[in-house]
Write a protein that binds this DNA or RNA. Structure first.
Lengths: 101, 101
DNA sequence: TCAATTAGTCAAAAAAAGTTGACTACCTGA
DNA sequence: TCAGGTAGTCAACTTTTTTTGACTAATTGA
């Protein structure tokens, strides 16, 4: 998984667009900007989605260093997803996309 | 084809991300920022692409008002694609994507 | 012990996106 | 009139992405 398009001689924008695209990623990103989210909460918020879809999206977003997964060791073991430092760096551009979309 | 995500109650960024994504669209957009392009020129510049891929991408980008198609009535009839006004509006955000990608 | 909640995994099917190769149509110069 | 360049279309195929439904595993409260 590359983090920089220039390293493969591609169009760098393409790399980032690919990381933010997909059926559920933009919505996950938007929700995670506001506050950390847990798996089932996300599942309930994203109508029409399903466990597999979210698991895939979250795993990819974690691999691409967009979100950070944290295990919270309380009673029924919560797993929290929040934006990573790189993810936070992308907030302004995401907000621009929201404005122009 | 919608131009504004808010009109369908979706994540607005999602609409724009979808319009800019796809195997060839980012590269087409980047090339078209620099100067108007013709079909076969694009085909030659995008290694691994094919007529169908480009025809699809260009048609969609035209429908989404990202590029403008112009028929140039010279000898062997050229067709030129350049950024539309809306497309030009997106240049800054695309350049940001290039920087961060 | 049983049901519910947490957060997933797995395999298969369905849908969407991308590729391939043949074909069309117009115009021009030889 | 025939070859070559322009810009495509079409149907079939392959690949990738997304969905569906069943299943797992740990923990908790009744």
């Amino acid at each position: 998984m590359e983090k920089n398009g220039r390293e493969q001689g591609q169009c760098p924008a393409e790399t980032l667009l690919k990381q933010l695209s997909g059926k559920w990623k933009p919505q996950i990103f938007r929700i995670a900007i506001a506050e950390p989210v847990r798996f089932n909460s996300l599942l309930r918020q994203l109508e029409g989605s399903n466990k597999q879809a979210l698991a895939n999206a979250l795993k990819e977003m974690e691999e691409q260093d967009l979100v950070q997964k944290t295990v919270i060791k309380i009673k029924p073991l919560h797993i929290e997803y929040k934006l990573s430092d790189r993810g936070k760096l992308l907030i302004p551009i995401f907000q621009q996309l929201e404005l122009l979309g």
